Amino acid sequence: MKSNHNGGGRPLDGRPTKRRLKTKPILILLALLLLGNLLWFIAWVIPNGPTGSGEEVASVEGVSITREDWMVAMEEQYGKATLLELVNAKVMDTAAQEYDIEVTDKEIDLELALIRSAQDGAITNVQSLNQEITRQKLRSQLILDKVLTKDVVIEDEKVQTFYNENQSLYNVPTTFRASLIVLQSESDAQDAVKELDNGSSFDVLARELSVDISSGSLGGDIGFISEGQENIDPAVVTAASKLEVNQWSDAVSLANGRYGVVFVQDIAKAQTFSYENIKDHIKRELALEQLPQSVSPEAFWREFNTKWFYGE
C-alpha cells in the first residue's frame, strides 16, 4: 500500500513508514547471476565434447550446426558480459585483500534470506540459479558495498530507529523453492503424477506439458514462494507446505480453474533477525543511500591495473 509522505519522511498521519532500503537492485543482481550460470554451462559443455570444432551438435534438413558454430554464437551474444563478470569478481577479490575486507558465510546467508523474502511477481521467474554462483555473486556485491561505505558514518540511533520502524521486514517466513506443472484438467494432472511416479523428470514434463509458458520454459521453476505472496495461488503454497524436499504433490485445484502438480526443490525455514543480527546490514544499506551515485566494480579497474580481451 502506498502512503503520501511529507518532507520528514513519514506518512501524513504521523505513523512510521515501513519501507525497504534501496539495496542493490535485485533484478539486476539476479540477471547477473543468470549470466554466471551461462558461464558455468559453457565451461561444462566445452571439456566434455570432442576437441574437433567440426563436431555436429544439431542438424536441420541435413544441414549441420557444428560445435564451432555454437561456441561462436554464444561468444557473440554473451561472451563480453560473461567475461565482464569474471573480471569484476576478480577485481572485488583483489579489493577485499587491499582494503582488508571480510565477507562471512553468515552475511551471505542473511542476504539470501532477505532476497527470498522480497520476491514478487517481477522476479519470481528469474530463478534457475546455481547456488555456488549465487553465493559468489553476493560475496562480490558485499565486498563492493563494504568498500564504498567504509568511510560513511551512520549513527547507531538511526540504525535502531530504522529497525524499530521496519521490524516486520526481518521476520522472514518459511519459503519453498518450488516448481509447478499447470494442466488444463484434473485428469491431465493425474496423468502427469503417474508419469512422475514412473520415473519421469519433473523438469522435462514441465517443459513438455505445462500450459503456463513462463514457468514451463524454466522446467516449472517458480522460485521461492511463501504464504501470503500475492502473485502465487494460495493452493500452490498450501501444497508445497505439505511436501518434503524432492517430493511432488497430487493434482492441485488452482484458482483459475486449471490444475497443477507442485514439486519442492528446497525449503528455507522461517527466520527472525534480531537487531544484533541485522544492524550491520542496515547500517551498510543506509550508508549506500548517502552515496551520490551508484558505483560498479569497473570503477576499480584502473586502481588494480585491469586489462581484458575487449580492450576498453
Rank of each mutant, 00 (worst) to 15 (best):
M1K: 14
S3N: 09
N6Y: 06
G8Q: 13
R10N: 12
R20I: 00
L27H: 04
L34D: 12
L34C: 12
A43V: 04
W44N: 09
W44P: 00
V45H: 07
V45A: 10
G49Y: 14
P50Q: 13
G52R: 13
E56N: 03
V57G: 02
V57K: 01
V57A: 07
A58N: 12
S59L: 04
E61W: 06
E61T: 08
V63K: 14
I65N: 01
R67I: 10
E68H: 12
D69F: 06
W70A: 14
M74F: 15
E76N: 11
Y78E: 00
L86F: 09
L86S: 05
Y99W: 12
E107Q: 15
L114K: 01
G121W: 07
N125F: 12
L129W: 14
I133M: 15
S140I: 02
S140W: 03
D145K: 00
D145F: 01
V147F: 04
K150P: 00
D151Q: 07
E155N: 15
Y163A: 06
Y163H: 12
Y170Q: 00
T175C: 05
F176W: 15
R177T: 02
R177W: 06
S179A: 12
L183G: 13
S185C: 06
S185P: 04
S185Y: 06
A192L: 11
K194I: 11
S201W: 09
A206V: 01
L209A: 02
V211M: 06
L218R: 13
G219R: 10
G219Y: 12
I222S: 09
F224H: 14
S226H: 15
S226V: 01
I232L: 02
D233R: 05
A235C: 06
V236P: 05
A239W: 07
A239C: 02
E244P: 02
Q247K: 09
A251Q: 07
V252P: 10
A255C: 00
F263C: 07
Y275R: 08
L291I: 11
P292F: 07
W301H: 14
F309H: 07
